[in-house]
Design a protein around this nucleic acid. Structure first.
Lengths: 198, 198
DNA sequence: GTCTATATGAAGATAGAC
DNA sequence: GTCTATCTTCATATAGAC
């Protein structure tokens, strides 16, 4: 195997496994020792691939963003209507319910953590949210296209983000799956009503 | 001044000022050096009042809970109807908008932070949320008393918690006050509609 | 009760042998 | 490219003089 390929492969393994670790421990409690352990790479070796812990975070977020973009593109081919796509988005917390209950939303909790006196890192974490926000705005634009709605697509997208973040926070705190189920059903009704007001 | 009074006074000063510090830095990034600095007490001296950092957290949360209980009791005398009280609750993020934009919700962000592999501490943080949750449930019970509503008061309370947590998260990430304003108005309409369905 | 000095451990990061 | 040994810094926590 060529040298560059090997490097890329090990680097990818570190990033993939650190993604999960970051989610479960948070950024500040995640140490290089932890990273080395889950990545199955000698501790000092991580520094061959990443200069600093911030660099690791950056790589993990970029990896996450790649996955999100790919997922959203797939959805656009698999679900023909914006209503279906928006409902699919709202399903995420329910599909990931065990993890949401145990650790919260990976995107929201990271933003909350870094939002406290680590603004340069929070800016990185925000990029994840931007991906969803932009995509949701696009879907809502299509949804309410010829409906003189009194709310803009951007506002509707923000509202949907608020609902998914809120239910992740509360269901996480109360360790209660039924909250997710109920709230997702509410969201589906609300999305239907957005179309119905023609 | 009697010895016991002096101790209580210094202890209270540490707790009050650490409350703010905890909010702004989060638990894991808040060091004893920071605490000593904001409390204006020599570093090693904190240990006379608190054995561990966890003990400081416990005291701060107890202090917060006391303040919350007092506030809610005041509301019950100042606002005669449950509708007014619920609207007053929804106003909190708007009243605290600068701080919410900069640091998020003090209660929600603490829960999110401690919810990751620090479950014994998260249990403490959850107690804050319980205070609001129980009080909101009580208000919703009064609100929908004789209305055969299809949603229970507990579910409505959880939904309101979700909305306030969600808007805190999103407005914090996007540093956008207008989100708070818009969402609080939405909540007020929703609360009105809860009564209107008689 | 107050404060200083310090023990102890773990973190991020580096140097350099292999 | 890989891995070990180690540097430095800063954290929590303690001992003990005053």
């Amino acid at each position: 195997m060529a040298r560059r390929e090997k490097t890329t492969q090990v680097r990818e393994q570190i990033v993939k496994r650190t993604d999960d670790l970051l989610y479960k421990k948070g950024f500040n409690l995640m140490s290089f020792t932890d990273i080395a352990e889950v990545a199955d790479v000698p501790r000092g070796n991580i520094y061959y691939y990443f200069k600093t812990k911030d660099d690791v975070l950056k790589a993990v977020i970029e990896y996450r963003i790649e996955g999100m973009k790919q997922m959203l593109t797939e959805w656009e081919t698999n679900y023909p209507t914006p209503l279906q796509r928006l409902k699919r988005y709202a399903q995420i917390p329910l599909n990931e319910k065990q993890r949401v209950i145990e650790y919260g939303c990976p995107m929201g909790t990271l933003n909350s953590e870094l939002g406290k006196s680590q603004t340069s890192l929070q800016h990185l974490a925000k990029q994840q949210m931007d991906i969803f926000n932009n995509w949701l705005t696009k879907q809502f634009t299509l949804l309410i296209a010829d409906q003189g709605s009194n709310q803009s697509a951007a506002e509707l997208a923000e509202h949907l983000l608020i609902l998914t973040q809120g239910m992740s926070v509360i269901s996480h705190i109360y360790k209660d799956e039924s909250i997710l189920l109920r709230e997702v059903q509410n969201i589906e009704k609300w999305l239907d009503s957005c179309v119905a007001t023609v």
